[in-house]
Design a protein around this nucleic acid. Sequence first.
DNA 1: TATGAATGAGCTTTCATTCAT
DNA 2: TATGAATGAAAGCTCATTCAT
Lengths: 202, 202, 202, 202
Amino acid sequence: MPPIVSEEYKEKKKEQILTSALACFAQKGFTAATIDDIVAHSGISKGSIYNYYKSKDDIYIDLLNTNTSHYMEQITEQFSKLHSAIDKITFLFDHYINVDPQDEQRLGYVSVFYEFIFHSTRDEDIHALVTKRKNHLLKLMKDIIEQGQQAGEVKKELDPELYAYKFWIMIDGVSIQSVFADSPYHNVLAMLKQTYLEEIKG
Amino acid sequence: MPPIVSEEYKEKKKEQILTSALACFAQKGFTAATIDDIVAHSGISKGSIYNYYKSKDDIYIDLLNTNTSHYMEQITEQFSKLHSAIDKITFLFDHYINVDPQDEQRLGYVSVFYEFIFHSTRDEDIHALVTKRKNHLLKLMKDIIEQGQQAGEVKKELDPELYAYKFWIMIDGVSIQSVFADSPYHNVLAMLKQTYLEEIKG
Amino acid sequence: MPPIVSEEYKEKKKEQILTSALACFAQKGFTAATIDDIVAHSGISKGSIYNYYKSKDDIYIDLLNTNTSHYMEQITEQFSKLHSAIDKITFLFDHYINVDPQDEQRLGYVSVFYEFIFHSTRDEDIHALVTKRKNHLLKLMKDIIEQGQQAGEVKKELDPELYAYKFWIMIDGVSIQSVFADSPYHNVLAMLKQTYLEEIKG
Amino acid sequence: MPPIVSEEYKEKKKEQILTSALACFAQKGFTAATIDDIVAHSGISKGSIYNYYKSKDDIYIDLLNTNTSHYMEQITEQFSKLHSAIDKITFLFDHYINVDPQDEQRLGYVSVFYEFIFHSTRDEDIHALVTKRKNHLLKLMKDIIEQGQQAGEVKKELDPELYAYKFWIMIDGVSIQSVFADSPYHNVLAMLKQTYLEEIKG
DNA sequence: TATGAATGAGCTTTCATTCAT
DNA sequence: TATGAATGAAAGCTCATTCAT
């Protein structure tokens, strides 16, 4: 291996680690998953992992950061193709509808993510991170609603922030319920989408 | 102190352990909290704790069970004083509204409880327990809605199960958001209550 | 329970404890068997057991002592009915032949007993005890052989001590082999008996 | 020391652990000896020991396996130099005669080994192992006797299996007796050797 | 005497992290 | 940079023994 290595190479390596870490955390939970699990899953040596990340927590944090970035980028990209507020909201709902709630990988990821939130109760750094993510998403929704109000699509009298909260509250709630195999995930989401849209449409 | 201690005494001891356990789990999370933490918090010796509970998991499980029982009893008792479906739903919303979202103990409990749900993804026994709890609460709500439909208080055309889900989804979502200090917990809940009631009223 | 209790009562209680202790040690081995096992098996409370024995080791020691006494008494009694040396030796061989080598209780007991011997390597008190037992049995055999020599039944030229050793060595060896289910315990013992008797007969 | 240590290095390390383990087990017995004892004796860290062996039981098992292999190899090698059955049997007797019965290390090993046998009463895996060892040794002896019969050195009428058993029974018995410092180990063994050979010679 | 809850030292085992190569 | 053997603190749990009643 060359003593000097491109940034690109490093990025790729970190990504590999992150992918394996996510898989391991998803399968066993953050605490129960061990560095050796990540070693086994990634094929990267323990020493190497510690060259890229200074601790297990560090991996965890980068995982959330990277994932948040990806998610935001994805949405932004999709939104560039959409113009009306209602279309955007519809798109977001559909994003969650077009998902197999029982897909193991998805479930694993959901677990990791919400564990992270509760973990954050006890760690300031992580709390700040999670709060930032939440505020990003909230702002996104609030902007859409305000845009919709200006365009006359959305009722003027409703509080954009409150309705932005309502949106993410429903997503969070539905995600939690998706943990239960017998939940009517799709039906519920369809209903939530319909009533939410009716409720806000001007 | 021996010999032959009353059942009452034992119950009290278990309750002490549970109280300390909840405090420790709330502060550090289930995995990170140690038996020694519970020892320190409760003043009860390690050996004694293991006389009452056969493992840390066992404590965790009893914690959820006991809490669920208390919660269900409380609600059942209150419901006996209420008769219309709308009153009952209002009562439930108010139950969550009349809470300080930033109360440390409550936050701790919420963290422990939702961690439990995600933990359950990886442990069948716990999953069964959590599912049972969910189904209890779901049934409770469904029954209220059906009762309301029969009494003509609630729209006949809506699916009781779906709306029961919607209720708990909102509660879960709001509970998660309450982790963030800057969330407008009360305002959002008040709005959710109002729109939910309007939506279902016949 | 009366504050003053007869010696007889105490003896009976100790015997109960010893019986249960033997059963437990036989099943799990001395170290693995717990006082609670003995409590469960005997129905006698833990505190009570400690009234009669000051430690687990103490029980172990009394077990061997008592057992040795019983065994010696038994043999002595039987020997009173026999007169020739050859008859006595025959009786001893038959004592071991008339046994089901795979009887669980017997196997348990054999295990406990030999464990004791090896345990004794590390504990002077126990070593003294075990040595004393060995010497008792050795003397018993040596006396028989000498008696046989005087009576002209047994060859004069053989060393009584050496042949006494040989006898117990074979018994020990056979006992160990009996641990293996597929050992031809009876056939081997029958052969050992025959050749031993032939070897010593005058 | 990493990276990529030779197999040889690993073997040496395992051997070190085994040597220390044997010493500790010999001194205190398997159950009473602790991993920390092995750490102290070997100077190898606890974590490292667990890198090479996954449990205390595992060490115990490898100890027996390794020892059995060495013993069998040793015998096989020596046997290649010997041809007559009587020579081989003589060699085996002498192998036990040429030993200091009070040598601490030997005594330790004997204790560990026989404890193992009795331990095996309660553990199927270990029982299988010990049974296999016993059958190996039995077969070895039986083959020698049969070879001797074919060559006319050994009486044709005696049952090879029974006499193979007799041989090992005597070795076991003598080994047990060697625990007692005052046993005439050498004299007894010499006598056993002489009478056994006379008994079987054709 | 009898009881069994209480105790805590001590056990085996795990695992994040380090560091010599 | 890459490797993986080494480390040891810390975890969950057991159990002989004590002692208040």
